[in-house]
């Protein structure tokens, strides 16, 4: 089921949090709402769920206009950042909650909950209470609880933010494959660009309540349309006042096309090597080299190179022309 937003705006105490958001999240896709904190992404998610009222605009789920429907009538699965467990209920009862609301008969309810607990690999934890679970388990319980009502739309608010790095990585790819398996339209809010790039089919990048850019993660990364998007999605450096990804610059020992510069620092980070250079007028750029490239060049402090971009046009310039063409 698609989610359509048409001119959605929201203010809190006179400050504009969402400014005229219009977009469509495609059926069966995983969309990531990506932006820094305060960009309005969580508010947008809560507006879609009906948990926060909007000031103006429309929200449609498929063909149905739900702008004035309360959350309980929207039939949307929602996972909260802190998982919002029902602390006084067992894992089983947590997952069964939505089915109980729908008055699903006991036997059917039990079968469905067991199926869901199997899906999120919590079969052995049915009788536990939320405080007896680890963060990752609690997250999976929240997911099972949201999926119990068979929603056609799933909203995830910073689902991995509270987990440690290893669990986060595992859960991310697991959620990704589960989403593909169920084919459920999913909107995920995150401030972590690598998470969004890894998990989403499409990015919606928000900044100060406005959409900066939308598109496939790899496309947006390579062709950002604004400096904000370029800087938010990955590292940037400048040469002749134009923004580039640091791996788009190359170093050579001689040549006329390019800027003569001196190495001021070499930072080795495992597979990547960062070379910082400064030209005669004091402007500095940095170049990202792979381990092998660095080995061939063997840059060291004080060495002189010619820096030039692999492509004639800068990052944003490329993004703008591609955007205009597509």
């Amino acid at each position: 089921m698609t989610v359509s937003l048409d001119g959605v705006s929201k203010s809190f105490a006179k400050s504009l949090v969402l400014d005229d958001i219009t977009d469509v999240f495609a059926d069966g896709e995983m969309t990531a709402l990506l932006g820094p904190s305060g960009s309005g992404k969580s508010t947008l998610l809560r507006i879609i769920a009906g948990l926060t009222p909007l000031d103006s605009g429309r929200v449609r789920l498929g063909e149905r206009d739900v702008t004035s429907s309360p959350a309980r009538e929207r039939h949307i699965g929602f996972c909260f950042q802190d998982y919002a467990p029902f602390r006084h209920l067992s894992v089983f009862a947590n997952v069964a909650y939505g089915l109980k609301v729908q008055r699903v008969p006991r036997a059917q309810r039990k079968a469905r909950v067991e199926e869901l607990l199997g899906l999120v690999r919590l079969e052995d934890f049915a009788d536990r209470y939320p405080h007896q679970l680890s963060g990752g388990q609690r997250q999976r319980m929240a997911l099972a609880r949201a999926l119990a009502i068979k929603p056609e739309i799933l909203l995830l608010d910073e689902p991995f933010a509270a987990l440690d790095a290893q669990v986060r990585g595992e859960l991310r790819s697991w959620v990704r494959s589960l989403q593909k398996e169920l084919g459920i339209t999913t909107v995920l809010v995150t401030h972590d660009q690598s998470e969004a790039m890894e998990i989403a089919d499409r990015l919606v990048i928000l900044n100060e309540g406005k959409i900066e850019q939308t598109g496939k993660p790899s496309f947006v990364y390579d062709h950002p349309s604004t400096d904000f998007v370029a800087g938010f999605l990955g590292p940037i450096t400048t040469l002749w006042g134009i923004s580039y990804r640091p791996h788009e610059l190359e170093l050579s020992l001689d040549g006329d096309e390019g800027e003569k510069a001196t190495v001021t620092d070499v930072i080795r980070l495992g597979f990547e090597v960062r070379v910082v250079l400064t030209n005669q007028t004091g402007e500095s750029s940095w170049v990202q080299l792979t381990h092998d490239q660095a080995k061939a060049l063997n840059p060291s402090h004080g060495q002189r190179y010619v820096v030039r971009p692999r492509s004639a046009r800068g990052l944003i310039e490329q993004g703008r022309t591609k955007q205009a063409r597509s």
Binding site: G50, I76, A84, V101
Partner: peptide
């Protein structure tokens, strides 16, 4: 809020 999204 979670309970209300579940239809309660």
């Amino acid at each position: 809020a979670a309970a209300s999204t579940l239809g309660a």
